[in-house]
């Protein structure tokens, strides 16, 4: 059975549904400094068996205000920081209940003031598996789905994470476990709640000592605190339109604050709350083609920029 906000339409219009559903695996918008920049794999949508969906998403995030610890400020040495990503992503239905997911962003960063060099490169590849453990009718209104996601992520190039906020990522290997409950009404409304825990591996710098969290560390290795993420999605789905509104909260479980007038550091305690609004639209005449658009805004944070992000994407789906 296909599980998605529009599952009641699955049998009637399989292609349309497939495209719409699968391709909802949208990348979450970027929150500087890219702690978890990759695809979040946080939705309740599954590809049907043997369906492959793949495409490109473009995001552009910009901020001028950021939180130095909890102090909100701007910096004349950076002005606006812009991060653009082109993310290749794909999903494949091994079965209707088990999907494989992958994504790989290419990232560009730049500042509008000061002298710091722009950076760009292929960032971290993410591979995940998503499993629909349980789907059960709940009341007469809709269906409850219980979903688990496991994912790993690792850098594809040896970019340096030691040039924040311009580094293209944290260069940390990550393993994420996510649990997701999704209640989908027969009328198209749906409500998701998810919680994820990401374990992060140490990263290596090109220098032999660094100071963070009030401590001088005589090593080129940096311990990366783990990250907890919770998200609530309220959405509405029609056969060729899905509109999710997502509220995401990321908490880094350790790490130091950016010190007064210091540069950010890779293991900083990067927390934020962000609101996302997205639209996914399947072309009525080309049901294998899904267009994505979205905006997001960081509402509150610590050691991150108050980014505003726009996103656009094109995904294609088809049965193998």
């Amino acid at each position: 059975m296909c599980v998605g906000p529009h599952s009641s339409h699955t049998r009637a219009a399989p292609w349309r549904t497939i495209a719409l559903a699968l391709c909802t695996a949208a990348s979450l918008a970027v929150a500087w400094p890219a702690a978890l920049r990759a695809q979040s794999m946080d939705d309740a949508i599954f590809m049907d068996r043997r369906v492959l969906c793949a495409g490109l998403l473009y995001t552009r995030e910009q901020w001028s205000e950021y939180w130095e610890g909890s102090r909100k400020r701007t910096s004349g040495n950076i002005g606006d920081v812009t991060t653009q990503q082109a993310t290749w992503m794909g999903a494949y239905g091994v079965t209707d209940r088990l999907n494989l997911l992958a994504s790989l962003p290419y990232v560009w960063t730049r500042v509008s003031q000061g002298v710091l060099q722009r950076q760009s490169g292929s960032q971290d590849i993410s591979l995940g598996v998503k499993y629909n453990a349980l789907s059960t009718p709940l009341t007469s209104v809709g269906t409850l789905h219980v979903i688990g996601v496991a994912a790993v992520s690792m850098p594809t190039t040896d970019y340096s994470p030691d040039f924040m906020p311009l580094s293209i990522g944290t260069a940390s290997r990550r393993a994420t476990a996510r649990g997701l409950l999704s209640f989908q009404s027969h009328r198209g409304w749906y409500l998701n709640g998810s919680a994820a825990y990401t374990r992060r591996g140490n990263v290596r710098l090109d220098r032999v000592a660094y100071f963070t969290n009030d401590q001088l560390v005589l090593s080129n290795e940096v311990a990366m605190p783990d990250v907890r993420e919770t998200a609530i999605t309220l959405g509405y789905a029609r056969p060729n339109l899905v509109v999710p509104i997502v509220l995401t909260n990321q908490v880094t479980l350790g790490g130091g604050d950016i010190r007064r007038q210091d540069m950010p550091f890779v293991s900083n305690r990067m927390n934020f709350t962000r609101m996302d609004a997205r639209v996914q639209y399947t072309l009525p005449k080309l049901p294998g083609v899904v267009l994505h658009a979205g905006v997001s805004r960081v509402l509150n944070g610590r050691n991150v920029g108050q980014g505003t992000t726009v996103m656009a994407g094109l995904l294609l789906a088809g049965k193998l």
Partner: peptide
């Protein structure tokens, strides 16, 4: 893959 990645993350820092 997940298990290997998690297990191979030795996260203690050996200072020089």
């Amino acid at each position: 893959v997940v298990a290997t990645t998690v297990i191979s993350c030795d996260r203690s820092i050996t200072q020089t």
